[in-house]
Amino acid sequence: MKMHLNRHWPLLTTAGVLVALYVAASIAYTGFSSWFQFAQLFADNATLGLAAIGMTFVILSGGIDLSVGAVIALASMGLAVLVSHMGLPVWIAIPLVLVIGTGFGAFMGAIIQMFKLPPFLVTLAGMFLARGTALLLTETKRIEMSDSAGIRALSSVLVVDFNIAAMVFLVAVLVAWAALKYTRFGRTVFAIGSDESAARLMGLPIASTRVGIYAISGVCAAAGGIVHVIGTQAGDASVAFLLELDAIAAVVIGGTVLAGGRGSILGTLLGVLILGIITTIPNYQGNLNSWWIKIVIGLLLLVFVVLQRVSQRWSGARG
């Protein structure tokens, strides 16, 4: 039992912080604890959440993906161009954008795997490429899409106050959780992150798994871009600027170790919600400036990273 608790206590800490934040905000601000605000929390952070889910796979495998913000922008602008400029119906354009996102991620993963290059650099190049392409797609850098019937229809879908963005986010959490826990692929992700050479000696399919990991990050980012378009009814090439940092922060706060091999999707969900609550509080507290958010997120990162170190040393010392 003690061993069990030890393994889970980073996640329990994250959950504790989330509950404390939620309760404190609910007491301090009227309306914060409403069901509507709860659903809104998922809707507002769906893009970040989707990116963070993909990032969790990448970080679990010991890698990093700096391109997700730019891929979100590319997906956002790509969808807008396909629908508004080329007249494609939404039900064709959305799968097309998802395929492009998957392909983009898989391409980066293949380069990382084939040439043994650092993920940091390859995804940095991917970031420049995706952001540059998104900005070059149109002169205006932004396309209003409120005249598209398909997008309008999608944006009006509501199930018990959860809009389509929130639902996509929640479904993605479930699928990712199941994939990591119950599939061969998921276990290989953990194995690569823990010890890649051991995984190779065990005969695990490292190459295809790594390509798959970055493809997942790509498709998650593309989905994030799509729900952003549905939410704002516009394609925008400058959205999600440096969003990868928030995504990494959410993953780390969620208890996933940056060196890889340890962590969970559930933790990432909690991390995203913590970031979401912190960024929502200034809406209720007028005198709180937005820069405090950055400082608080930095401090939270610090606390969680130090906690991770302490828990690692502790469990290391106990054998």
Partner: peptide, 9 residues
């Protein structure tokens, strides 16, 4: 990364 986020704040 911590100072990258907090420093700008």
């Amino acid at each position: 990364l911590i100072f990258m986020v907090a420093g700008r704040g």
